[in-house]
């Protein structure tokens, strides 16, 4: 068989297996997250499968409603687009994609992450829920000091916040992502893995496994970058304390407010898969253990270690308030400075 066709067949099979495992596994993560938070708050909490798995199934079978949006078809398309972007983000991290047009590199990961971020800007600018300005009854008080002010939907304000978070909030994550590539002196994920785990090759036997000999996480710049990466992970997931663009107390759900039924299920799939994708990327880049769908030992190790970030996230969420931009700007600047410090230190390794 032609080598190219064989490679493409392996790529397709590995992608299907990887996505199937990742999707199923990612549906368990919200349950673990919620259970830990509940225990911290002295509550029993929901069953593990309830918030991820069963809620997605439930929403898929709910009666479909048309979202109120400026362009409803575009608004609905964004969910499918988001799931696609996050799936590719995860797949670029798997070994067979490392050989595809340079997508398995910092460029592929950063590109997909930026696309994922921009989706929230589009969602926010589209959604027009009844929760803010479109009340079905007259709602302006006679005698108001400000009778003719431009009124904005909450979701549109959320879109503006998303833009700010894109510019400032997520910067530390990208700086932290660069550190393993600086240590490996390459832009390819494959080189980063081999630097830490020289015995690993995607073409090894399916029963084989190899442990990393020099994980970047256990170096000074790697450790600093890991902390910055974790907080960037929180920003990307829009979780507390960086949940300003969908703060319950004002923006409610932000741009995703109008998604219901199957679209809501799609949004949960996207969010859960993003959580696992970012965790898996962390294990690949900072520990040198990739998610190889053809090596059960490797992908199981990756999956188990990927729990680190969601567990840490649960604890952080349980003990954090929501930051406003008064706190977010200095935090993002401080984290970016730490990220730059990690990069400078990484140059000396």
């Amino acid at each position: 068989m032609d080598a190219t066709i064989l490679f493409l067949a392996q790529l397709i099979v590995s992608s299907v297996i990887a996505l199937a495992i990742a999707t199923l596994y990612s549906l368990v993560l919200p349950g673990i997250e919620r259970k830990i938070q509940a225990r911290i708050q002295q509550r029993v909490g929901p069953p593990i499968l309830m918030p991820g798995f069963w809620s997605v199934i439930k929403f898929m079978y709910k009666a479909r409603t048309e979202p109120i949006a400026q362009m409803p078809r575009f608004y609905k398309f964004l969910i499918g687009f988001g799931v696609g972007v996050v799936s590719l983000l995860f797949l670029f991290n798997t070994p067979y994609w490392w050989f595809m047009l340079g997508w398995g590199s910092i460029l592929g990961i950063a590109g997909m992450l930026k696309l994922e971020e921009v989706i929230y800007v589009f969602m926010g600018s589209q959604s027009q829920s009844i929760m803010s300005t479109s009340m079905p009854v007259p709602d302006t008080v006679r005698g108001s000091k400000w009778p003719n002010i431009r009124r904005e939907f909450n979701e549109q304000h959320s879109a503006e916040r998303s833009l700010k978070m894109m510019l400032i909030g997520s910067l530390p994550l990208y700086l932290a992502l660069l550190v393993p590539f600086i240590v490996a002196q390459s832009v390819n994920i494959g080189s980063v893995v081999v630097t830490q785990n020289p015995a690993y090759s995607p073409f090894n036997s399916w029963l084989s496994f190899s442990l990393p000999t020099s994980p970047i996480l256990f170096t000074v710049p790697g450790f600093i970058a890991a902390i910055v990466y974790f907080l960037g992970f929180v920003v990307m997931l829009n979780e507390k304390p960086f949940t300003i663009l969908k703060a319950k107390i004002d923006m409610i759900e932000g741009g995703v407010l109008e998604y219901a039924a199957n679209l809501r299920a799609g949004y949960y799939l996207m969010r859960n898969l993003l959580m696992f994708a970012l965790s898996s990327i962390f294990v690949t880049l900072f520990l040198g253990i990739p998610f190889d769908p053809f090596m059960p030992a490797m992908f199981l190790m990756n999956m188990v270690l990927s729990l680190m970030l969601p567990i840490a996230l649960s604890v952080l969420v349980a003990f954090s308030p929501i930051f406003t931009f008064r706190q977010i700007y200095p935090t993002a600047i401080g984290l970016s400075a730490l990220g730059v410090l990690a990069m400078i230190l990484a140059l000396s390794i």
């Binding site: 009124r151 904005e152 004002d250 409610i252």
Partner: peptide, 14 residues
Amino acid sequence: MIEKELSFGPVHPA
């Protein structure tokens, strides 16, 4: 000078 109005409620989870 006011740029815009944001309104919340009366149907609002918060």
